[in-house]
């Protein structure tokens, strides 16, 4: 994949928020890109999935890097950095690169860290290209089991696992997120195996366990049930029994 560093591509942006405490270290300015190659049943922002065409009630915008920099400048004194989320951020790799490069090159913004929140499905070369301008990535691992992953996301998890390993090798893996749906991907044996796989990548990995929340999600053929607090804590215990992960339960 070639990345054109001379021109400034526009991004297809679903929305931005100035302050977020749940998208990486410190307070962050977050850009949500429109369009995702996954079709997760549990997606809580399903309006950001379509990559083009109108989305009823929502107004994704083609946005120039400079336009975003203007908004980021306003928030800059209050944030540790920016995070690009989605949708799927890596579906627009040229824009992602251009935005990060512009932030890093800007006199007033250069100190901000640049993070990506991703489903991890992209070609590994996207991470290689981003490496000079990116500070970290948060990757969602929907499920270690390929069949369950296929059923809940419509996609193979091979590239996701490869991304996690590759980002760790590049020193760019900030956090892996496990979104648990009761009765779907929270079985103890499965979590045990997930822990073993993650520990093989990094024993002290930051792992965020997120309980599925029905709010915002679409109707689904598979029954989607919110896991109890106890179930989430039990999942954390299962992982902790495998390796000394840095675990946060949300």
């Amino acid at each position: 994949m070639s990345v054109h560093r001379d021109r400034q591509p526009t991004g297809f942006v679903a929305d931005t928020i100035s302050f977020s405490s749940v998208d990486g270290p410190g307070n962050r300015f977050v850009v949500f890109l429109q369009g995702c190659n996954f079709d997760c049943l549990a997606c809580h922002n399903p309006q950001t999935i379509p990559g083009h065409g109108p989305v009823a009630g929502f107004h994704p915008q083609h946005t120039a890097v400079e336009e975003l920099l203007h908004s980021i400048r306003r928030a800059a004194p209050f944030v540790s950095g920016i995070t690009v989320s989605g949708g799927e951020a890596t579906q627009q790799p040229e824009f992602l690169h251009a935005l990060f490069a512009a932030v890093k090159a800007d006199r007033d913004l250069g100190h901000l860290s640049c993070f990506v929140d991703s489903n991890g499905s992209c070609d590994l070369r996207v991470w290689d290209d981003l490496m000079p301008v990116m500070d970290g990535a948060m990757i969602d691992l929907k499920c270690l089991d390929p069949q369950i992953h296929q059923r809940t996301t419509g996609m193979d998890n091979g590239p996701v696992l490869a991304s996690i390993r590759h980002l760790q090798d590049l020193g760019l893996l900030y956090e892996v997120r496990l979104l648990l749906i009761a009765g779907v991907n929270d079985e103890t044996g499965l979590l045990q195996r997930t822990g073993e796989w993650l520990a093989d990548v990094d024993q002290s990995m930051r792992v965020k366990i997120i309980g599925f929340r029905a709010h915002g999600a679409r109707k689904s053929s598979l029954p989607l049930i919110e896991p109890s607090r106890d179930a989430l804590n039990a999942a954390a215990e299962t992982l902790r029994s495998v390796a000394p992960f840095d675990i946060c339960v949300v």
Partner: peptide, 22 residues
């Protein structure tokens, strides 16, 4: 601030520093 900040108090430190810069 909502309760998500409890898990990320650094976010509030960022805001406080920004508030004084402003």
């Amino acid at each position: 601030v909502d309760e998500t900040a409890v898990r990320n108090p650094e976010a509030v430190v960022d805001i406080i520093r920004g508030a004084f810069t402003s």
